[in-house]
Nucleic acid binder design. Structure first.
Lengths: 113, 113
DNA sequence: CGCCGTGCATCACTATGCGAGGTAGCATAG
DNA sequence: CTATGCTACCTCGCATAGTGATGCACGGCG
């Protein structure tokens, strides 16, 4: 395994998802929209990556979820961050920060000074 | 294709390689070491990703390369950034910046303000 | 003489993002 | 009444690209 979890290189989805869930309970589609809004439209996970990520996070115990019937429209699955999810978020944030710092340093040309 | 080139999510290697080559001519192994040093040891591309990336960059015309016999030790392939490489670097930097900004915003919770 | 370090290269494995396709409910247009 | 389109969920196959293992070649050291 690399220095910086190799999944972090492409795996920003868990970080993003957990981040928006700090706001409170949200359902899948809404999570994607929040990420899109907050990123300034720069990106949004596609469904093919969002839902699997949500399931994985739930399986890990980072999220808890419940189905709820909508008065109108189809049922939605609401996700809430667990305390384990909070810890995971902190971990992902730390990894992101050191990754971003590393890139910035390398691109900027500062050595270990 | 997504908003932010999907390769950028994991494809920081070209950015990193081109960045260290601003210093001048370097050979493969040395490039890896520079990246490692500059990133503060946070990461270094493995050989399995570095060499293919170098070949791709050369094929694209972003780098020019020449073999040189070492007085001691095996021959080395020295890479130099071309002007097309400079343009590519600028592009990768811009992409990285907007990507990092998007993540920062999403994690930080700032909306489009 | 065997091992290690430098240096380049390639391979199989793996992770995961993406788009397409499928199900379903409801609303509006024709 | 049917078509289209939006919300909302899920899953599949494809492509990309990072990792470690393996191999070749050269030279120094114990």
């Amino acid at each position: 395994m690399g220095r910086i979890g190799s999944q972090l290189l492409k795996g920003t989805t868990p970080l993003l998802v957990l981040s928006v869930l700090r706001d409170g309970e949200l359902y899948g589609y809404e999570i994607a929209q929040r990420i899109r809004e907050r990123s300034g439209g720069a990106f949004a996970p596609s469904e093919g990556s969002l839902y699997p990520a949500l399931h994985a996070l739930e399986a890990e115990g980072a999220l808890s979820a419940t189905w709820r019937e909508g008065d109108k429209g189809p049922r939605r699955r609401y996700y809430r961050m667990t305390s384990a999810g909070g810890a995971l978020l902190a971990e992902h944030e730390a990894q992101w920060n050191s990754f971003a710092l590393g890139v910035t340093r390398t691109v900027g040309g500062e050595a270990g000074r």
